[in-house]
Amino acid sequence: MVIIQTDDFDTTHEYALLRQTGPGTGAIVTFTGLVRDRGDCNDVEGLYLEHYPGMTERVIQGLIDQAAQRWSILDARVIHRVGALALSDQIVYVGICSAHRSDGFAACQFIMDALKTTAPFWKKEITREGGHWVEQKASDQQRTEHWLDQAPD
């Protein structure tokens, strides 16, 4: 399930939905990303997130499908917010159900790493001086490539 929305999300509700997957689930791994006060600029007051409707959902669903091929997962929920966000706001949520924790941890980390370098979102940091489009980090690219290096043939 992929959801792109401007509204906040409730991690308790999301966790409850993941728990309904059934008795085959032995592990739930979740990740929540928040707006930090320090990015490319040091005095960030908020973010503005733009995306490419349609392609965004398609790319993230593709990452969930890839994760399901590589690891044994039973369900995946990804939520990403767009629009204006304040400091400490929740931006992104990834929740994975799996039989065993190792599959859940790996799938969650893979989806998050690959989302950062392939899903069409763009962050603008808002500071007192105005807006600044965030540059993609080489370290993020390397984290995604690291998963490709480990992909089974």
Partner: peptide
């Protein structure tokens, strides 16, 4: 991206294609 799939400059376009041009992505 052409029709919402990442591609390269050598791609041949078709009538009614949707081409998107954008900077490297920075979500998450």
């Amino acid at each position: 991206a052409v029709n919402q799939t990442m591609t390269t400059t050598s791609t041949l376009l078709q009538d009614q294609d949707e081409v998107a041009l954008f900077p490297p992505v920075t979500g998450g």
